[in-house]
Every structure is written in C-alpha cells, then in structure tokens.
Nucleic acid binder design. Structure first.
Lengths: 294, 294
DNA sequence: CTTTTTATCTGACTAATGTCAGATAATGGA
DNA sequence: TCCATTATCTGACATTAGTCAGATAAAAAG
C-alpha cells in the first residue's frame, strides 16, 4: 500500500470531518438538540417508520422513543400505529414539522451554495464532478456482501432489476413473478445459495448459485446496480459464490452469458472461467463458461 | 445558482458526514471519550501549547482544562509551564501517551487503507486526485480575509514568503528583515492597511495598501500561498483593499508588477487596472498599473 | 512599581446523549 | 389457543459535553 496515498486519504478525512462538523454544529443545530434535528431530517416529508429510523441512525430504542416524544410535544411530529403492523409506529411531520424541515433543508442548501459561490462556474462543475467520483469510489469499501435468504423483499427488488435490465437490452419483457417465486427453494442451502451486496443497508447487487447434478454448480442472476458498476462488486460476489461452491465440494461452476453484456463476459474470463460447449441451450444465451474449482 | 449542483453538493455532505461519522465513532473512540481522543490526537508527537489547542479546537478553557487533567490522571500527558511564558502550559505526551497516539494513528491509517484496498491501483490514484481537488476547491469558501495589524508573527511569515517567492524567481536574495520592520507603521491606519487571508486560522495570503501623497494609494505585498492559488483569493484581497481606499477617499490606486508574475498582471487587468507610465522606477519592476476609484 | 491583560483553573451548573433492565402490547407460528 | 418474538415504552441511571462566573498567577503596559 502506497504510504503517500494513505497519508492523503487521512488528510482528506481530517479536513472533511472538520468542515462538515462545523456544518452540522452551526447549521443544523439551531436552538434544537442535534439528535432531534437529525431525527426530524430523517423522518422527512414522506414520513418514516420508527423501526427503520432506529436501525438507520443506530440508536437505542429508548433514546429514540424519548426523542420522538419530545418532537411530539413540540407539535412537529405525529406518531400513529402502522397499518399492516400496529406495533410499528409510523411517524409523519405535522404542518409545523414540515416548516421546520424546510428550514433545515434551506440551511443545508445555503451551506452548499456558500461552497459553490466562492468558485467560478468552471470550478463549480469540476468540484461537483470530483465529489461524485469521491463518493462513488469511497462507497466501494462500504459495500458488504453476505449470504441471505432469497425470498426477502430486497432480493425480489434485485431480481426485478436484473430482469428489467435484461428486458431493456433485448427489448423483451420477462415474466418475472413466476420465475422469482419458483427459485426461492433452489437458492437456499443445500440446494444453492444467494449473495447480496449492500451499501449502507441498501441492496446494490446480487448473485446466485444453484447446485445441479452432482458436483456441478450454476451461477445465475448476477446483477450490479448501475451506480456501483466498475467497483469490483461483481467480482466480489463471484468470489463468495465460488467459496460456497468449494465448501459444498463442487468441482465445476458454470455460467451462461448473453451476447450483449460484454462486461459480464470479461468478468468471467478474468476470474478464470473459460468458454465451453453450450451446456444448456436457451433463448438469449450465447456464451457458456465454466471453471474447475480446486 | 444551479439547483442540481446544490443538490449534489448536499448529497456529498450527507454521505461524507455519515461515512466519517462512522470513522470517528468506531475507530477513534476506543473506550475513551471522543473529546479526549481528539485532544490526544491534536497534541501529537511534537506536543502543543494548551492555548493553541483551545483556539484550534474552539473549546471552552474550563472544558479543555478538565480534559487535560483527565489525560494527566491517566498518565498519557504531562503539562508544564512554558519556557518563554510560564502562563502558557506546554503539553507533551508521555511514553504511554505516545503509545496511545500510535494506536489512534494506526486506526486512522487502517480506515484509509480499507478505502484504498477496495480499488484497483488506477482507481486509487484517481480517488486520491479527486480528494485533493475537493479539498482544494472546498477550502475557497472557508478562506476568511480580514484587516489585521502588520506586525504579528503571521504577517511576518507572509512577508517572508512573499520575498522568498520574489527572490526565487529572480535568483536574488532580498534583505527582508530590514524591509519588514520598517513597514509596520506605514501599513496601519491612517497611513495604510494590511489584509490577511486565513484558512482555518492559518495564514494563506496577504496584501497591503499604503497611502502616499494625497489621495493616492499604493498596493503592495500581494501574496497568495501556492496551495490556494487559482481560488480567487488575490482578487478578494484586492477588493478589500479597494474598499478601504474608498473609505479613506483615495482617488487612485497604483500597483507595481514585475515581468515574471504573469498571474498577478492578469489579476490586475481583470480587476480594472490599466497600465501606465512608470510612476516609481525601481529594480525588478517592469509594469505599472493604476485604477481610478469611484 | 502599579495596573491591565492574558492564560489557566475551579466550582457549580445544565443539557445532551446514551445505556440497561424490565414492562406492555401486537404479531406470527405451533 | 398458547408461546415466542418483535416493537416500543418507561424508569432509573451514567457519562459526556459544554457553559459561566469568578479566582489565581504570570506577563505586559504604563
């Protein structure tokens, strides 16, 4: 690891902590405790479930409870039992709460503007582009990949995106609902497995492995969200699936690929997969890869 | 102001606050209150004056006093009266304190490394370059320019840099000491003024105006630190000096410039200065500018 | 040699932030 | 129906963070 680069990243972290700390203290902290302001901000215009806020902000349930109570007393938030599940409290902003939120948003906008106005238009553009790159590249390290059950709402969301992407590229609609539900058992051990990539809890990619005849696994449904493509997420998912394959003593992994997804093909090739005979001719599949596991 | 750009800057602020907040909470906060850890980190290997820490971290003197006391009790820091000024307490880390500091540095390095290792070498390079740009461009809005007395240590430091820059470009040494001390009175109202640009308290630029014969001011010692060049600091200093000139009913401002500093010349031209006859022929001066104040 | 300023310390507070162990009620599954 | 689980609430704490008004001593100014 290049020590100079590490130094520069640390420097960046320090100055950003300093600058953004100043932001949070002076802009969001207007007469109201920071915790309350943050909560108000996170509830936002569409409202939110208390449960969700707790996990998003990683706060103690008792603490959140009291914060919400305080916001209620100030007439900024209303809490009512959820429709589907009466245990989960649904929080929405009152009219006064919306007013406050707009105030907070305004302050945060002013801060952003104060950064931009100091620059020429060309510099503004350059700054924003660099920010986008920093965000994108830094997110790579925050992406976590874990094995998960394939029948959650998030998994379903990934599958839908996977099929939509396919459909977009081929100009064909895929009948997702049927395909998705049929899969759930096949993608659970010992029949197979399902890996999901998450960024701050939000799904941003997935991949599945289903075990066919003895010792042969088939990798499918590899999908990576557009905003994190090029960050090596696909490769990491593939590696996890291969490890699972080894643990289950598989000897060969196969992948189908189509003509259009060139990135996918080069991922497979660079991961040691070699093109073989069609092992399972199907529509929209033009290439067949396999790799022997050691 | 472009709303989309403002949105992107806000998004950047949010994700960075989130990511770096996680860093501060989980990495730097190892069994010790964050305040103490920060202080330890700021004292650092070379030690620091308590006074300096107070202003750098913007903390209440009572609060710092107690934090230091706590660190002393833990055997991490020793405080002794300063050599030059026995009021100013000099803080140094004990052996155990150094150990702790190394621990903190190590954690922060690990965090930086975890960001980099997720990327390919080319991406690492790109990320670091983007970070540098973001830091640089964001610092523009944090630079504050104020009128200050010209005989402080910081002013002196700026002057030395100014003369060093000149000397470097002409391959000549300037006798700074004599020139600097003689100036102090000329650059204080009503004889003139002195403006200093600061970034987080650190001087990063200066400019002076001295009032000559009736109604004529001469601008001199315009200097901008290399790391913030191109951010419009020179222009802002110039504008401040012009405002001062108007307040003192000056009608004309003059500037001398030399052949080599092309950036300076274009700054003057773009600020409405026009080239005139030599009003004060001197070595190393090749261009004379003036501007009528309205 | 006074007087003022500066740097720090101390005591007395307050508010914010957070933690933990039950209590309570809705839900889901056996 | 009964039981375990889940989501939240409540009370009782503890710690952290921060403020403010003097007190004290060294240094600088007059």
């Amino acid at each position: 690891m290049d020590a100079e680069q590490v130094r520069l990243v640390r420097k960046f972290n320090r100055t950003m902590t300093h600058r953004l700390g100043a932001l949070n203290d002076s802009f969001l902290n207007r007469g109201r405790p920071l915790g309350e302001a943050r909560l108000l901000y996170e509830i936002g215009a569409p409202g939110a479930d208390l449960r969700e806020l707790r996990s998003r902000l990683e706060l103690d349930s008792g603490y959140v409870s009291r914060l919400v109570r305080s916001l209620e007393r100030q007439g900024l938030v209303t809490a009512r039992p959820g429709k589907n599940d009466a245990r989960v409290r649904r929080l929405t902003l009152t009219r006064a709460g919306m007013q406050e939120l707009r105030q907070l948003v305004r302050l945060s906008e002013e801060f952003a503007e104060s950064i931009l106005t100091a620059l020429t238009p060309a510099q503004q553009n350059h700054l924003v582009n660099c920010m986008i790159e920093v965000e994108r590249l830094m997110s790579a390290s925050a992406i976590q990949i874990t094995f998960e059950p394939p029948d959650t709402e998030d998994a379903r969301w990934c599958f839908e995106n996977y099929f939509r992407d396919l459909g977009d590229r081929f100009g064909v609609g895929f009948d997702t609902d049927q395909t998705i539900s049929a899969m759930s058992e096949l993608l659970t051990p010992p029949n197979g497995t399902f890996a999901m990539a998450r960024l701050d809890g939000r799904p941003v990619g997935c991949g599945a492995l289903s075990i066919k005849e003895s010792r042969i696994g088939e990798i499918k449904r590899m999908w990576v969200a557009p905003e994190v493509r090029g960050l090596g997420v696909g490769k990491r998912i593939l590696t996890m699936l291969e490890e699972f394959g080894r643990d289950f003593s598989l000897t060969v992994l196969r992948i189908e690929a189509n003509r259009i997804l060139g990135e996918a093909q080069s991922l497979y090739r660079s991961s040691g997969y070699t093109e073989t005979e069609p092992f399972n001719p199907r529509p929209f599949v033009h290439h067949w890869f396999e790799k022997k596991l050691k």
